[in-house]
């Protein structure tokens, strides 16, 4: 009797675990199918899109709860250099870009925990309103030096990331490796 009860409890537990694990796997696979890559930038189409069904709704809620709709803003992330290495505070990078077919854009630096880095430099973000027309270049380094535009990586350690937000993209905005800003490594400290 007791053995039978234990067998049923185990059956229910196994069922719950399989149910939860299969949902997790489905959302992982489904979520990655929303991913797109443009050069070093990755883009998740799920954030800001309209749910077409319960699975897309769950993926959107998991990856972009309360995100702006895609009509309002598109998000791109970059966390590796051209060599596939995580972005590192001990290196100096340069991000070069041309005007984007959008009303406005910004680039923000986040630590590996997804939050702004607490370094007191107040150089979290550079946006289009500060940069004039034409091509531009932003230095990503622990110190500003002579660069006019700067994102501070001081205290960010290894594994920080850049987020490019493109607001009110025009109908002809087509993200590509060529149209999005390009990251290059300028130098790295000896210890690297």
């Amino acid at each position: 009797m007791l053995r039978r009860a234990a067998a049923w409890v185990l059956t229910v537990l196994i069922g719950v675990v399989i149910g939860a694990a299969s949902l997790w796997a489905t959302l992982e696979i489904g979520g990655s199918s929303f991913g797109a890559h443009f050069g070093l930038w990755s883009h998740n189409r799920a954030a800001g899109s309209t749910a077409a069904g319960p699975y897309t709704r769950a993926i959107i809620a998991r990856d972009g709860l309360l995100a702006l709709s895609a009509r309002e803003a598109l998000y791109f992330n970059l966390d590796r250099d051209a060599g596939g290495r995580p972005l590192d505070e001990s290196c100096v990078y340069e991000l070069r870009g041309a005007p984007l077919a959008a009303r406005w854009w910004s680039v923000t630096l986040y630590g590996d925990d997804g939050f702004l880095v607490d370094n007191g430099d107040n150089a979290y973000s550079v946006d289009a309103s500060r940069i004039g027309a034409g091509t531009w270049s932003i230095r990503i380094a622990p110190v500003q030096g002579s660069a006019p535009y700067w994102l501070s990586s001081r205290g960010a350690g290894r594994g920080f990331a850049l987020t490019l937000r493109v607001y009110n993209p025009q109908d002809d905005f087509r993200p590509s490796a060529e149209s999005l800003p390009v990251l290059s490594q300028v130098s790295c400290a000896e210890a690297h």
Binding site: W8, T11, G15, I18, G19, L23, I60, R62, L65
Partner: peptide, 29 residues
């Protein structure tokens, strides 16, 4: 019957969590 029950419970759990996840995240927000 154990296998059938486990599969049935797996399906129910999968569907219930699927609908509960967005609502749960919104509830917290």
């Amino acid at each position: 019957k154990y296998v059938q029950t486990a599969i049935l419970i797996a399906i129910i759990t999968h569907v219930m969590l699927l609908f509960a996840l967005p609502r749960g995240l919104m509830h917290v927000a």
